[in-house]
Amino acid sequence: MIDKQLEDLATEAPSTIAPQVLLETGLADGYLRHPGPTGDMFVSFNPRGISSVSLESDAQQFEDQFEVQFRRPVFPVKQLPTRLARALDKALATRRLGTLPIDWDGMTEFQQAVLRKTAEILPGEVRPYSWIAKEIGNPKAVRAVGTALARNPVPIVVPCHRVVRNDGQLGNYYYGTEVKRAVLEAEGMNVDTLQDLADRGIKLTGSDTTHIFCNPTCRDARRTTERHTVEFRNETEARQAGYRPCRHCRPAAVA
């Protein structure tokens, strides 16, 4: 009789135990809502660093997508670990990756190379897919670069929105071209000017005082006054005019 009473003392563990254990052992990621450049976003992390950033607005949808993509659970947390919080705030304020740790596990070496290169593009600038391909020593892999960027698990912090089509058009974005435009504009990019150049087939601009040609959004190109700016449709045209490529934005071989 007393055995039965004791048996009945067995109870269900609170639903918070397993998530907390899995978080603490790094077998699940934590996530929270965090302000981003165009409103709130979800940020997930684990002991290796930031594992994903999502502009999704619904928490359940975010969790479901995460678990399909990463095949491990993700749980809401109160706050980021202090060091990660500091690094993330800095990365978002400066719009540069800086020392923010990213969980690169589960990415191919190629995708890592693409994303690390993408992280070098400064805020206010854009580069074509072909530029990334060339810079990582794989000039023919333009399409693969597009795929790697489309699967960027950490948008915003690794600024895949700064990579545009080779013809200068904004191109695709996981959350749609309009969101890409909004994110670029939020960091001070004049998308209309960019669009205008693309529409006129202008891929490079140079300065007639230095005889250097640049990607149009290169910070050096933007310093050139309108009066001294010359426009080129391609590299050959620029070279024939006696211009050399900029050493900062390395525009050569932009097809």
């Binding site: 269900e12 609170p14 918070t16 998530p19 907390q20 603490e24 749980f75 947390v77």
Partner: peptide
């Protein structure tokens, strides 16, 4: 090191 957001767990106990 990470504190679960317990308010989000209404299921179970």
């Amino acid at each position: 090191t990470v504190e679960l957001d317990r308010d989000a767990f209404s299921g179970g106990k």
